[in-house]
Design a protein around this nucleic acid. Structure first.
Lengths: 152, 152
DNA sequence: AATGAAAAGCTTACAAA
DNA sequence: TTTGTAAGCTTTTCATT
C-alpha cells in the first residue's frame, strides 16, 4: 500500500477517467506544472499504483450483448482442481472475471457473450475442461453502472 | 453493432492490452503502416467501438483490499424505486458495478472497499438511501481473473 | 520547482495502388 | 476506397538551473 497526497489523488482521478489528456491539460486540471505532473505519474507507475493504460471497447458494438454471472459450487476442493479451474478460465477470453468467494457459493464467473447459444458453448466448453458439480447462471438485464474507476 | 475485419480486430486486441504503444509499434504488430493504423483507430472511435482510454490502478496499492458482491432482493418493483436505486449507487464511488439480473436475485452490486468496517459503512449508507428488503454479501477471497479485455 | 531543448510521436496533406 | 510517404506540429522526456 502507498500513501498519496491530494495532488496524486487528483492526478489519478483524472487519468482513471481519461488517459488521453496531455500533460498540459492535466496540469491545469490539478493545478500543477506539466512537469510536476509528469514526475508524479512516473513515481506512481514506479510504485505500481498505475498498472497500465488500456482502451475500453463497447461490448454491444462488438456483438457481445449478453453479460452473465455463473455461480459455481464444487465438491472438489483439492489444490489441483483449483489449478485446473484457474488455467481453464484464464484461457477463455469470454470470461472476464473469476473470483473465489466466501459463503456457500464457491466461485463466481463473469462473462460476456453474444447470445444464449454462445453462452451454452461457453458452458459446455468449461464443464468439459473442469469437473463442476453445480453451476447456476444469472443474466444481466440492465447494466446500471459499470466502471473501471476506483474510489480515491 | 459494427462489422470488423481481421486487421481491426488485431488493432483492438493490441489496444485493449496496452494503449501506450506508439503507432509505429502497433503498425508492426498488425502489419500495417502507422498511418493505416491511425485511420482505422479514428474510424473505430467514430463508430463508438472504442469508448475511451483509461489508466488502470492497483486496488491493493490504494488500500482497497476487499472486493464484495452484494446480492439484493427487493419487493419494491415500482419504477421510481429503480430510479432512486440507480441514482444512489451511481453516486457511490466504492460501487464499481450494478446489474439488474434475471432469476431470483434482483440486483447484483460489485464494490471495492478497504476492509469490513468500510464495507459496513457502504452498506449502512446504501440502505439509508434506498429501502432494500434483503441483502446478502459475499466477499472475494481470491481474484483468479480480472480483465477489461473483451473477446474479439 | 521551473525552464527549455532534444527526441518521440501524432496528424495532416498528398500521391499511389 | 484504401494504403503508404513525407513533412509539420504537438507532446513527452529529461538535463540543467
Amino acid at each position: 500500500m502507498v500513501t498519496l497526497d491530494d495532488i496524486d489523488r487528483r492526478i489519478l482521478g483524472e487519468l482513471q477517467r481519461d488517459a488521453t489528456q496531455s500533460l498540459e491539460v492535466l496540469g491545469q486540471a490539478v493545478h500543477l506544472s506539466r512537469n510536476g505532473c509528469w514526475r508524479r505519474i512516473r513515481a506512481l507507475e514506479g510504485a505500481g499504483v498505475i498498472k497500465g493504460r488500456v482502451t475500453l471497447l463497447d461490448p454491444v458494438k462488438l456483438g457481445l450483448s449478453l453479460c452473465v454471472f455463473m455461480m459455481i459450487r464444487t465438491n472438489a476442493h483439492a489444490p489441483d482442481w483449483l489449478e485446473q479451474f484457474s488455467r481453464a478460465t484464464r484461457g477463455m477470453p469470454e470470461i472476464i472475471g473469476v473470483y473465489r468467494m466466501t459463503g456457500d457459493l464457491d466461485y463466481l464467473i463473469r462473462a460476456r457473450v453474444a447470445d444464449m447459444a454462445d453462452y451454452d458453448r461457453l458452458y459446455q466448453h468449461l464443464i468439459r475442461k473442469v469437473p463442476i458439480s453445480d453451476v447456476s447462471a444469472s443474466f444481466v438485464m440492465e447494466e446500471i453502472k459499470e466502471t473501471t474507476e476506483l474510489p480515491l
